[in-house]
Structure formats: C-alpha cells, structure tokens
C-alpha cells in the first residue's frame, strides 16, 4: 500500500510539473534566457529577411523581431535569428526552437485552432495572389484576359486559385506549368505566356528580374487573401499582447505622423494626448502590456521608424522589390492597416 501511494504521489507530481497551461510561460522563458528567438525564412527572403555579405540579418520581418526585442528587453540586439524553412517552421515553433515566427506565415483557421495551436497576434503584411502582364497588352482588369496563356507553379494553391478565378468569370485560359520559379519567370520573360501569377510580394520580386521590369504591370485584382502575421504558440496571453502592441505601435505611429526623424521632438513638445500616450510620455500603456519600459514605442521608432518607414526601407518603391503600399497602406489612405487605439 505504502509503495503504491508513493508511486501515485510521484506520478501526481510528475503530471503537475508537466502541466503546461501556466499563463505567460513563453514570455517567462524568453526573459529568463535573455533573448527572444525569432524564426525567419531561410535561406533568404528578399527584402523581408536576408543575411548580408557580412552575415548580418536585415529586412522587413527582421526589424519586426528587433522591435519585439525592444518591447521585451529595451534592446534590439537581444534577439537570436533562427532560419526556418516552410517545412520546419511549425515543428520548430511547437518544439520551442523558436519563440516567434516572423517569416511571412499566412494566418489561416487550421493553423490558428486545433491542428497547430498557434496564435497570430498581429498581421504585418497583406499579401494575396496577383497577376502580372506585359504593359503592351493594354489590359486594365484581369477580367479582360479571356483566352490567355498563364504561367503558374504546379501543385500549389496558386494554381487552384487561378483556375477558380477564370472559371468564376467564364473565361478560358491555357496554363503553362513549371515548378521552378526562375524557370517560370524565364518562360514569361521570353513570351511563352501572357500572364504570370503568384503572390503579390513574390511577383514583385520576380518582376525586378525581368529583362525590362518597367514593361510589366501587376493588375489590381487579388485572387486570394494571404494575411501574413507574426506567429507564436497558443497559450501565452502576455506574449500575445506584447507582440500585438509592438506591431500596433508601428502602425499607430505612422497614422499619427510620428517618424524616426521627429519622434524625439514630438515626445518632448507634442500636446496631442494620443501621441503622448503612445510615446509613453503620459499614461501607462507600456506597463499594461508588460514592456520593459513605458516608452518602448518611442525607442522602437527612434531605432527603426514607423511601419511605413520600415516598409519603404526594405520592400518599398525605392528598393529593388519596388512594392507599392496598396493594401498595406494605413486605413486613412485607403489601405487595410488599422490598429486599435493606444489608450
């Protein structure tokens, strides 16, 4: 009997200690370790996350991670970048190899719920399948593309979406399917097809590699929704808040016209209560989300600028990717970026 009760007690202790549902456990672990582990797309993702010739990571997604490190530690250097592939990203996140995924992961229902149990605190980029055509075709809408030849990668949702789109609009098309993206681009460039389709950001990157990039346009239609969000494990509300309000601060700052250049001046002299709250001059927004300092947003903007500045620096019109803001503009300028108010 005695032995049995000892075994039972031991088993109970084991079960209790293995109980994972402690609030904030991921954040606690990050703080204990002293760095946040951020999964970025490996080997590289032009403009979004890529190591330079000296082996330093840079790019849009990389700066989102550095901003999160500022919120947690008040130090953009306290982040370890872990390259993940599209195959390894979810197992890596589940197993705790990374704390945060910032690698253009699309927020979908199955990833959010019972299958993977992830959380998507904030969308950082609105992507979607788009269509590129040569400018000389003089086509304004994809609905005028009846009978077109379409360059598309096989076995992807991209292929299914384009078929759906043409069928829904009662249009005919001939697919040219090539698995390798570089080969596919060459086929389009040499005129083997009239239309090149892929996700918008990828398509824009491919456009830079054409013989005459300026001769090609990306049509305004979006054939699918690909909201790319920062991804974390489910079950840590504090980390969720912290990541969400890091991204929201970047968006709010752009909306309020706070930039890297004027953030210090605004923090000192602005009388706008919204700006004063966001920059931590008044109120306790920083403490509420568990940031290292109340003025975390001010530090982030001083280091990297607002959402728009980060966007323009890495993927905007003046970069080789030449992405227009489009859906990724602030809501007041016709885009989809809309952050809850910081109050």
């Amino acid at each position: 009997m005695k032995v049995l009760s000892i075994v039972a007690a031991a088993a109970a202790t084991f079960v209790l200690s293995a109980e994972p549902a402690l609030a904030g456990r991921d954040l606690d672990q990050i703080k204990q370790r002293g760095t946040v582990r951020c999964g970025v797309q490996g080997p590289s993702n032009p403009g979004f996350g890529v190591p330079d010739s000296q082996g330093r990571w840079g790019g849009f997604n990389v700066e989102i991670c550095r901003a999160i490190a500022i919120t947690i530690f008040n130090d953009p250097a306290k982040v370890e970048f872990v390259p993940v592939t599209t195959q390894s990203r979810f197992p890596a996140l589940s197993a705790g190899e990374v704390d945060v995924l910032s690698n253009n992961t699309t927020w979908t229902l199955t990833r959010d719920t019972n299958v993977n149990r992830f959380n998507f605190p904030a969308i950082v980029f609105y992507d979607g399948q788009a269509i590129m055509i040569p400018r000389r075709l003089n086509v304004a809408s994809a609905r005028q593309l009846d009978g077109a030849t379409v360059c598309v990668q096989p076995g992807t949702t991209t292929e299914l979406n384009i078929a759906d789109f043409f069928r829904a609009n009662n249009l005919r098309f001939t697919p040219v399917v090539i698995a390798d993206l570089d080969e596919l681009r060459r086929a389009y460039d040499s005129g083997r097809c009239d239309v090149f389709t892929n996700d918008f950001a990828a398509l824009a990157a491919q456009r830079t590699l054409l013989t005459r990039p300026a001769d090609h346009v990306i049509l305004p239609e979006r054939l699918s929704k690909e909201p790319l969000a920062v991804t974390i494990r489910q079950g840590d509300e504090e980390l969720t808040n912290l990541v969400a309000w890091t991204v929201f601060a970047l968006i709010d700052a752009e909306e309020m016209g706070i930039t890297q250049a004027n953030v210090e001046q605004l923090a000192g002299s602005s009388t706008d209560p919204r700006i004063r709250r966001l920059l931590g001059v008044e109120g306790n927004m920083g403490e509420s989300i568990g940031a290292a300092r109340g003025d975390y947003a001010r530090t982030i903007i001083r280091s990297f600028g607002n959402y728009g500045e980060i966007f323009e620096r890495h993927i905007g019109v003046n970069t080789p990717l030449a992405l227009e803001r489009g859906q990724n503009a602030i809501w007041t300028r016709g885009g989809l970026l809309y952050a809850p108010p910081a109050r």
Partner: peptide, 10 residues
C-alpha cells in the same frame, strides 16, 4: 542560396 536573395544582387 541565401546570397541569391540579397536584394542588391538579385
């Protein structure tokens, strides 16, 4: 392969 993604050297 990472170097291939450098925006300056696409």
């Amino acid at each position: 392969r990472a170097a291939l993604g450098d925006p300056q050297w696409l």
